[in-house]
Nucleic acid binder design. Structure first.
Length: 128
RNA sequence: ACUACGGGCCACUCUGUCGCGGUUUCGACUUCGGUCGAAAAUGAGGAAAGUCCGGACAACGUAGCGUACCACACCAUCUAACGGAUGGGAUAUGGUUGAUUUUCGAAUCCAUCAUAUACAGCAAGUGUCGCAGAAAAUAACCGCUAGACUUCGGUUUGGUAAGGGUGAAAAUGUGCGGUAAGAGCGCACGGUCGGAACGGGUAACCGCUCCGGUGGAUAAACCUUGUGGGUUGAAAUGCCACAUACAUCUCGAUUGAUGUUUUGUCGCUUGUAGGCAAAGGGUCAGCAAAGUUACGCGCUUGGUUUGCUUCGGCAAGUCGGGAGGGGUAGGCAGCUAGAGAUGCUGCGUGAGCAGUAUCCCAGAUAAAUGACAGAGCUUUUCUGGCUUCGGCCAGUAUUGACAAAAUCCGGCUUAUCGGCCCGUAGUAAUU
RNA sequence: GGCUCCGUAGUUCAACUGGAUAGAAUAUCGGUUUUCGGCACCGACGGUUGCAGGUUCGAACCCUGCCGGGGUCA
């Protein structure tokens, strides 16, 4: 097991322009209860993917619920991202992605994990 | 022991693995700004919430005055301050005990307990009070009563406000006197309001005596009185980096007076004397503008230049206001040692205050405190066993209150599964 | 993080600034008319005035606290 489960600051997507581009020209697909929007990046960087996530305030009014879901989704990504990184490194490509939680109620951790694995599979296909 | 009420405290716990934020230390790399790695201790709340009050702090402002506006409003105390808290008073509602009256329904008074109170002023002015009712604030329908007239049925001119009815509210209650009938018209005892003296209390207020009144309610109606408030808020504010537009449209001001310095020039009595011109920089007044929360005064800031001219102005520049638009969307400081926390001692009825010892306890910014596994605790369901029939034990599944910092404090309000402790009252048992 | 505005039939708005049953249009339903439908006409239904307290004799309106929805500020 050589892969790292760390989640560095540089792996997070914070750039305003990239986020705007993501919403205007990014491609998307969903794997309930999650939905992903992604776009390839031209500029070089230290990580093959930049990740961000979103839980809508309209569906989850309380900050406590939003925080809990955000942490679960981030945790799932952190533990499974190595599957994505291997492919991207071998193809020498970079992407930016945002994961949104679209369900109207809280789902258990197992469901979110399954959904994230399907998303990563889908991303691999799309990039190739 | 149980129940009710009030107050305080806690806010599931432990272990392992993988992670996140800032801090410190060490190591590596470095463009010397930092980046990466490791270790250590550490990392959400009682409400972090709502943003309803009050402050600290910061910027603007020369900090003034008047009006307006807003907030507050029994008294004292606490506090940095407050619309908060503590203690007291008054009023209202309810309970209990006692007394009086009774139409046996209850009513009134005293004492006491509990709860509530946006408790200054309708005896300053103005307004409003639908429907009903005669009348909703200088009241008269029925009624009662005197005079006049009379066709003896009443009519009319006065007086009156006891009784009736309406209404949420009807002009001080009861008794006696009084009268044509009546009435605070008079008297006695009360209610209530104002004033004065005395006693108690820091005060609100209470008690008592005397005098005067007795013309409703409403100020969470306008308003009056008193007190307080400069405005804007960490998206404040300062610095660094990057970027662009000294662009566009529109409105307004751009006027006088007076010294002074330098330079040039003129005349001449050849001197630091005077005239003229130019340039620079002042002072005073005016002008319009902006700022001072709004308005007025006052104050402050900065502009008042050049060219053309048919002397009305026009154009450019400068300054100020407005409209609309463009760029950036990064970093650092502010940013957590404080009206701080905990313990002890003393003072105070209490909120609190003083002294002293120890401790340092989150600082994120596409926004850190999590995920998984196991064990215990807890909620509920089912199965089995035991039982003193209240429950207890084992297994299985299930559940974990309300809710997450965003400059920081003091309150208020709202949400909240449960557990523990203390006080008061009642019930039961024992002594 | 701050500031600010608004909540009335399913929908869009009224209600004399506190006075009794909260009104109109539209939508819905029923009827008349028509061969049928539309249009038109008649009638009905539809409201805890966002919620809870308070002030007042009386509250959609005044006050307080909650709930919900907008707008705006570098």
């Amino acid at each position: 097991m050589s892969q790292s489960f760390k989640f560095n600051k540089a792996e997070r997507l914070k750039n305003h322009h990239l986020l705007a581009a993501l919403f205007t020209s990014g491609k998307s697909f969903s794997a309930y209860p999650l939905r992903v929007v992604y776009i390839p990046i031209e500029q070089p960087g230290s990580f093959p993917a930049q990740f961000s996530l979103s839980v809508p305030k309209k569906k989850f009014r309380l900050a406590v619920d939003r925080n809990r879901l955000r942490r679960q989704v981030r945790e799932v990504y952190r533990l499974n991202k190595h599957l994505l990184y291997e492919d991207l490194l071998s193809k020498d490509k970079r992407i930016a992605l945002m994961v949104m939680y679209v369900a109207k109620e809280e789902k258990p951790y197992k469901d979110i994990e399954q959904s994230m694995k399907r998303i990563i599979k889908g991303l691999k296909k799309a990039v190739i």
